[in-house]
């Protein structure tokens, strides 16, 4: 169960805003986390409470394919990102590295900054703890559930490589 407070963001939050290009030569997730959302709000990294949840508008993660974007959110302790939908490369990257994301069409309207949120990752039920509203996230396609179930794409790939019968 994911439970924390909501940090609200608008729509079209791009990956340059999540982590600026000038930091893309950093590999250490904890170092990256110090610069998360720096160009959006330089005080964000200092104020964000690990375990809290980002609730954003549509098209979260648009722009660059940089995987350090979901990586630094995860390292900063973001428990989940909830948005009506995600830009496609960010969506793949988040699933691949194990940053929980949930597609919720009414996300922006149903949550305010600082409100309590509880998410059941197994059922996709999202509850606003401040007003009791219960919402249902869009279910992941069966294939994605298989990847998530295998423990991420790398584990899935390892199994598939073994299936190919030609460990390289």
């Amino acid at each position: 169960m994911i439970e924390g407070n909501v940090w609200k963001f608008g729509r079209d939050i791009d990956t340059d805003l999540i982590i600026a290009g000038r930091y893309c030569n950093i590999s250490d997730p904890d170092e990256l986390a110090k610069h998360v959302f720096e160009d959006f709000d330089p005080t964000f990294a200092g104020r964000f409470v690990p375990g809290d949840v980002i609730v954003a508008g549509a098209n979260f993660g648009c722009g660059s394919s940089r995987e350090v974007a979901p990586l630094c959110l995860k390292a900063a302790g973001v428990a989940a990102v909830v948005a009506p939908f995600f830009a496609r490369i960010f969506y793949r990257n988040a699933i691949n590295i194990g940053l929980p994301i949930f597609e919720l069409p009414d996300a922006a309207r149903c949550f305010g900054q600082g409100q309590g949120i509880r998410i059941n990752p197994d059922t996709g039920t999202v509850v606003n703890l401040s007003d009791g509203t219960s919402l249902q996230a869009v279910a992941f396609p069966e294939f994605m559930q298989k990847i998530i179930g295998a423990g991420g794409l790398l584990q899935y790939a390892g199994e598939r490589l073994r299936g190919q019968g030609n460990d390289r």
Binding site: E67, I89, R92, N93, N96, I97, L153, L154, R160, L161
Partner: peptide
Amino acid sequence: TGVGSTDVAVAWALGEVWLK
């Protein structure tokens, strides 16, 4: 199409990619 680094790593290993 563009993908992230984990997808690249998996394609290096398998020579394939999952796509919708």
